[in-house]
Amino acid sequence: MAPSRIVMVSGFTAAGKTTHSRLLATALGWRYVSMSRIRRSYVVGSSSSEEEWIPEGDRLRSANTALDHEMDRRLAELVESSDEPVVVDAWLQPWLCESKNAVRVWLHSDFSSRLLKAQVSRLRSGLRPSPVIRTTIADKDAFSVEHFRRLYGIEFGPDPDIFDLRLDNSEWIGEATIRASDEGISRFAPIFNMHVDAILQAGKDGT
Results as ranks from 00 to 15, higher is better:
Leu127Pro: 01
Ser10Asn: 09
Asp83Gly: 15
Phe148Asp: 07
Leu75Lys: 03
Met194Asn: 12
Arg166Ala: 15
His20Ile: 09
Ala202Val: 04
Arg37Lys: 07
Asn169Thr: 07
Asn169His: 12
Ser62Tyr: 11
Gly11His: 10
Gln201Asp: 11
Arg59Gln: 12
Ile133Cys: 06
Ala2Val: 11
Leu127Tyr: 01
Asp197His: 01
Ser144Gln: 12
His147Cys: 07
Val120Ile: 06
Asn193Gln: 14
Ile38Asp: 09
Asn169Val: 05
Ala198Met: 13
Ser181Gln: 10
Ser36Phe: 02
Pro85Met: 04
Val79Ala: 03
Arg59Pro: 02
Arg134Thr: 14
Thr13Val: 14
Ser62Leu: 13
Tyr152Ala: 07
Ser109Gln: 03
Ser144Ala: 12
Ser99Tyr: 09
Thr18Lys: 14
Met194Ser: 14
His108Thr: 07
Arg37Gly: 07
Val87Tyr: 04
Val79Tyr: 00
Phe148His: 14
His147Pro: 07
Ser170Gln: 06
Ser181Gly: 02
Ser125Tyr: 03
Asp164Phe: 08
Pro55Trp: 05
Pro190Gly: 11
Gly126Asp: 10
Arg134Phe: 08
Val132His: 13
Pro3Asn: 06
Tyr32Thr: 07
Gly184Leu: 02
Asp110Leu: 06
Pro160Lys: 14
Leu116Pro: 00
Pro190Tyr: 11
Leu24Ala: 04
His20Trp: 09
Asn193Trp: 00
Pro129Leu: 06
Ser62Asp: 15
Ser4Ile: 01
Val120Gln: 01
Glu70Lys: 11
Ser49Thr: 02
Arg122Cys: 01
Ile191Lys: 12
Gly11Glu: 10
Pro3Met: 11
Leu92Ser: 00
Glu80Gln: 14
Arg37Pro: 01
Asp110Trp: 07
Val120Glu: 01
Ile6Ala: 04
Ser130Leu: 12
Arg149Thr: 07
Ser49Asp: 10
Ile137Ser: 01
Leu123Phe: 06
Lys117Gln: 14
Glu56Thr: 11
Tyr152Leu: 10
Pro94Ser: 10
Arg128Glu: 15
Ile6Phe: 03
Ile185Thr: 12
Glu52Tyr: 09
Asp72Val: 03
Gly126Trp: 10
Ser112Leu: 12
Arg149Cys: 05
Gly174Trp: 04
Thr135Gln: 14
Lys204Glu: 08
Glu183Thr: 13
Ala198Cys: 08
